[in-house]
């Protein structure tokens, strides 16, 4: 029974955490973008406009949700929920801090640790494409349909590159469990350089680029392209649209957290041993959040800096650059790790 109680508490905490994070994230993005563009940004709702997201959320909630006459209504309603659920599910396997020990029992700061965590992450994130495809098709209009086809083609292409970029990580750490990957990064090269997976630099870069495309963020935001070309959610309004919006921001945080977990040692960082125990528990969480927010800032920075890519260039880049490079890099890594494990074949 205690297993269920522990799981329930963890899920509840994770849910509240991710919702609060998203609330801050939306506000922070608007503030940062306006700073980068020499504007003021939201400053009326609460101190520094921090309640702006809440106000926008309430507005969306009370707005009328228009029901397109040609839509297939059940699927039209299911699509935003199908966008949100994978976003929430991915967060469940990310460890946000070092395991803590209370009264002889060790608790992990991770809702669940799967033997095949990495496969789970890829599988669940591939489900997000359904939300977009369904939204476009069930709207019963040709513009969302075109937007959905374009978006799903983009997401599938970059999903392949992302999956391939993770293979060297698995080769290096020889585990697919997310907690295992973090543990494998705890050591150091020499005496002080942390042994993070970022040494797999091509993997890291490809994963990051694919992450931008997967979350539909600029410069790959043709998926929505709110200002000029129509996207899959053209027919959505009110709360249903807000759910798509929420899912996108949760995905930005998830992608940053995954990058940190897989390549930058997760919660690894120096923990001073003179501090009281409960602060020692919080220090890894602090390191995790610091690294993750640095990547969140990168997402925002890129959005404020880079223009949108043209669609054919996007597909060429994905299929003709990223995927061949990842394949070559996998072979190189496999050979190198084979040498290290088994020695040269001729010796």
């Amino acid at each position: 029974m205690t297993v269920f109680i522990e799981a329930a508490i963890k899920v509840a905490v994770a849910f509240v955490f991710i919702m609060l994070t998203t609330l801050v994230l939306v506000w922070a993005e608007r503030k940062w973008v306006s700073d980068l563009q020499n504007r003021i940004g939201p400053d009326r709702a609460g101190p520094f406009g921090i309640l702006q997201t809440l106000a926008d959320g309430l507005k969306a909630f009370f707005k009328e949700s228009i029901r397109p006459t040609q839509s297939i209504y059940l699927l039209y309603l299911v699509a935003p929920i199908a966008a949100l659920i994978p976003a929430l599910l991915i967060f469940l396997v990310i460890p946000i801090g070092a395991p803590i020990e209370i009264g002889g029992t060790t608790y992990t700061l991770q809702v669940m640790d799967l033997n095949i965590g990495l496969l789970y992450v890829l599988a669940v994130s591939s489900l997000a494409v359904y939300a977009i495809t369904l939204a476009g098709w069930s709207s019963g209009s040709k513009y969302p349909l075109l937007g959905a086809v374009r978006a799903s083609a983009q997401m599938i292409s970059y999903e392949a590159a992302m999956g391939l970029a993770l293979v060297p990580v698995v080769l290096l750490t020889s585990t697919t469990s997310i907690a295992g990957i973090v543990d494998a990064q705890q050591g150091t090269f020499g005496s002080f350089i942390p042994a993070w997976n970022i040494v797999l630099i091509p993997s890291f870069i490809i994963f990051l680029i694919a992450g931008f495309a997967e979350t539909n963020r600029p410069p790959f935001d043709l998926v929505e392209a709110e200002s000029e070309i129509v996207g899959y959610h053209t027919e959505y309004s009110g709360f249903a649209f807000a759910l798509f919006f929420l899912a996108e921001y949760i995905n930005v945080f998830n992608m940053s957290a995954l990058t940190v977990t897989l390549f930058l040692g997760g919660w690894a960082g120096p923990v001073p041993s003179f501090l009281p125990t409960w602060i020692q528990w919080l220090v890894p969480v602090f390191w995790f959040l610091l690294k993750t927010w640095a990547f969140v800032f990168l997402f925002v920075w890129v959005r404020a800096t880079l223009p949108r890519m043209r669609y054919d260039k996007l597909m060429t880049f994905g299929w003709k650059r990223l995927i061949p490079v990842s394949l070559a890099w996998i072979i190189l890594c496999a050979v190198a790790i084979g040498f290290r494990e088994f020695g040269a074949p001729w010796s």
Partner: peptide, 8 residues
């Protein structure tokens, strides 16, 4: 998903 794209 590829089926769906193909059909669409």
């Amino acid at each position: 998903i590829l089926f769906l794209i193909g059909i669409m």
